[in-house]
Amino acid sequence: MNSRTWMVVSLLITCLVAGFALAEVFAMTKPKIEQQKIDATNSALGQVLATAQSFKEITKDSLWYGLNQSGAKTGIVIRSARRGYGGPVPVLVGLDLAGRIVGLKVASPAEGLKETPGLGLKATEDWFARQFVGLDSAIALKQEGGTIDAISGATITSRAVARGVAQAISKYSEHLKP
């Protein structure tokens, strides 16, 4: 075999071997990867709507029904995101059937939050999210006529969370009837 042919053949062989190896690994890990994604979503949903045993996705990545053991609806979870300081601030809002907030989770940096450490990132802290629990309307920061204390030095992020929650509530009230 002359050197030019060998050049082509060796490259071909390398590609084939690499391709088959990757196909094999892909097939092996695919179910596991999908399971991980579902687990991650379910655990996040469970955190904001503790009364539900399982979740049914109604709109992809933005609306879920929480179901109890007998399959009856116990509440809904809505995902919304408004622009903060570094990018969108995704929030998961859990609502009971009366439309009250029962849980709120601001995405962590690993889930795509891009706020500044020490300022906007404090939106993920417990005390901030807890302020929203029990409310059903008029979600706004104190300086905008609402009841929510803004994180000091991070008004933009605080406002993004508040508006995200307000948007979620106003948009999906028709899903709350049992």
């Binding site: 690994v25 890990t29 596991k32 990867i33 991980q36």
Partner: peptide
């Protein structure tokens, strides 16, 4: 790519 898949599957 192999390590990428492996991390996704086992260390998400």
């Amino acid at each position: 790519t192999i390590i990428d898949y492996a991390l996704q599957a086992y260390q998400p």
